[in-house]
Amino acid sequence: MTNEVLNDLQKTALNVREHIIRLSTDGGCFTGASLSATDLVVYLYKQFLNVNKNNLRDSSRDYLFLSKGHDVPALYGTFVELGWMPAERLQHHLSPNDSIYWHPNVNVPGIEFHSGSLGHLPSVALGVALDCKIGGSPNKVVCILGDGELNEGSVWEAILVANAYKLDNLLFVVDRNFFQANMPTEELIPLEPLPDKFAAFGAAVKRVDGHDFTALEDALTSFPFQKDKLNVLIADTRRGKGLPSIEARADRWFCNFTHDEVDALLGELHGEHAATLESETLVVR
């Protein structure tokens, strides 16, 4: 990954986080969870998926299904940065006159399927992947899941079926931020050791830092991870990433800030971003 590409990804992710924070008022949104998924969504759309504003309904495109639908602010923000949606449309958030609200709606160009009821979209994604496989099409199909969502039995049923049909064109990305709603996952229903569990169900598994674009690149360059197996990428993330004041807090899953608080958080975001750029040593491959 070149410095130019890395800088572009970091800038895009920063802009998406700005959009998320601005959506966190006048009714609010699922701020913490959306911030944890931002880098994943940005990387997938900008570097991994063959999908753009000119092929959104083309059968040759790749597909992304956001099963943890409450992270849709990260999608909205990414769509704005990709030029698929005007930034002004985000001002219609929660308006009865638009489809911009707490979960994905297919009336928004780029949204592949309605989601919000957790555990449903892995099966939708595997159905699309199976159709692509039967038709001999090279499409990649990605489904982003929350870690708390893994408590749904339908997720594991989908993994079994995906491996039974050897869907190596299908990638499940787990946003592993270690929270389920307002509780740490390991205090509610412990999930670890996740790699062993996915492997026991027949998947090919990798685990990475979900905020490290170079690590994501290294992991996904070798897609599919193994022939004839479902691919699972466990991405370790941090709820509220980019805002130290709300990071890893159980009470910052859903947020409805005042306008003054939003302004303060935007300042915090840019201060944290500047400090990170100043202190980190970039390893470019």
Rank of each mutant, 00 (worst) to 15 (best):
Ser34Val: 06
Phe225Val: 08
Val205Lys: 01
Ala74Glu: 02
Met1Gly: 13
Glu18Met: 02
Asn105Trp: 03
Asp62Asn: 09
Pro224Val: 12
Leu171Pro: 10
Gly32Trp: 03
Ser245Glu: 14
Leu126Val: 00
Phe172Leu: 15
Gly83Met: 08
Gly240Tyr: 02
Glu247Asp: 12
Thr214Val: 14
Trp102Glu: 05
Pro86Trp: 00
Phe79Ile: 03
Asn55Val: 07
His114Arg: 15
Leu243Asn: 07
Asn151Arg: 10
Lys53His: 05
Ile159Asp: 00
Gly242Tyr: 05
Val124Leu: 13
Val173Cys: 07
Asn55Trp: 03
Glu272Tyr: 15
Trp84Leu: 04
Pro138His: 08
Leu49Val: 12
Leu265Trp: 03
Ile234Phe: 12
Ile234Gly: 04
Gln10Glu: 12
Ala33Ser: 15
His92Val: 00
Asn54Ala: 09
Glu247His: 05
Gly27Leu: 03
Thr78Arg: 07
Ser59Thr: 06
Cys143Lys: 00
Leu269Gln: 04
Val108Leu: 12
Phe179Lys: 04
Ser60Ile: 02
Thr31Met: 12
Trp102Phe: 14
Phe225Met: 10
Asp196Glu: 14
Arg17Gly: 08
Ala248Glu: 13
Pro73Asp: 06
Gln47Leu: 06
His93Gly: 05
Phe201Gly: 05
His103Tyr: 15
Leu233Trp: 13
Arg285Asn: 14
Ala235Phe: 02
Asp209Gln: 11
Lys197Gln: 06
Pro224Lys: 07
Lys11Ile: 04
Leu82Asp: 09
Ser222Ile: 07
Val173Trp: 06
Ala215Lys: 15
Glu268Tyr: 02
Asn3Phe: 06
Tyr43Lys: 08
Asn55Pro: 09
Leu160Gly: 08
Arg17Tyr: 07
Glu186Pro: 05
Ser24Lys: 04
Val283Cys: 03
Glu112Met: 06
Leu121Trp: 10
Ala74Tyr: 02
Glu18Tyr: 09
Asp251Met: 03
Val262His: 09
